[in-house]
Design a protein around this nucleic acid. Structure first.
Lengths: 95, 95
DNA sequence: CAGGATCCTACCGGATACTG
DNA sequence: CAGTATCCGGTAGGATCCTG
């Protein structure tokens, strides 16, 4: 699927799978991503209805992201990929 | 996983999931791909041990590709993605 | 038939600086 | 804090032509 393209979407969704999260917190957990990329990826995910964006009128502003029920639909895929990733990693280290 | 990156790998593996296949045949089934891309993607998949390449000494030469047992390991992921893709497609067409 | 060689372009994505 | 703006290089990937 093209909407999972890019270097980060999978990891972002994977992280959001653990629960709602704030922008800064996300950026810390998805190591290596810059604010620009995170922002862009989140927008695309939002447009596709996988992620919900909620702005809180605090100061300074805080924004929380969470998976929509529909977004949770992808969980199985992410899980499979994570599982397979482990196995693959193990295999690599053997050669 | 980065070895599934790129626009085509998933579709190629998906197609090979139905059984071994020849280069030309693959190119026909994976619509839109050019020979350069197909060739490149297949090489990467071969290097990663997901695909086996077999050259037959006919004339003109024929080359058959098939998933390795290890390559079949990804089947669950592909299946999940395919299933989800259908649902998603259905949802898109409703809006 | 299988695929390499070349050329070319869009855009992915990083770094940095700035705003409300 | 949560972004947007700008600049910029690398490369994914398309089109086309060529060979054993």
């Amino acid at each position: 699927m093209d909407l999972l393209a890019g270097k980060w979407k999978i990891r972002i969704i994977g992280t959001l799978g653990f629960g709602p999260n704030y922008f800064m917190s996300l950026q810390r957990q998805v190591e290596g991503i810059g604010s620009k990329m995170l922002s862009k990826e989140l927008q695309e995910l939002e447009v596709n209805g996988l992620v919900k964006r909620m702005v809180y009128d605090t100061k300074p502003v805080t924004v929380k992201y969470e998976l929509t029920p529909y977004g949770n639909t992808i969980a199985p895929i992410i899980d499979e990929m994570a599982k397979w990733g482990e196995i693959h990693r193990a295999k690599i280290l053997q050669e």
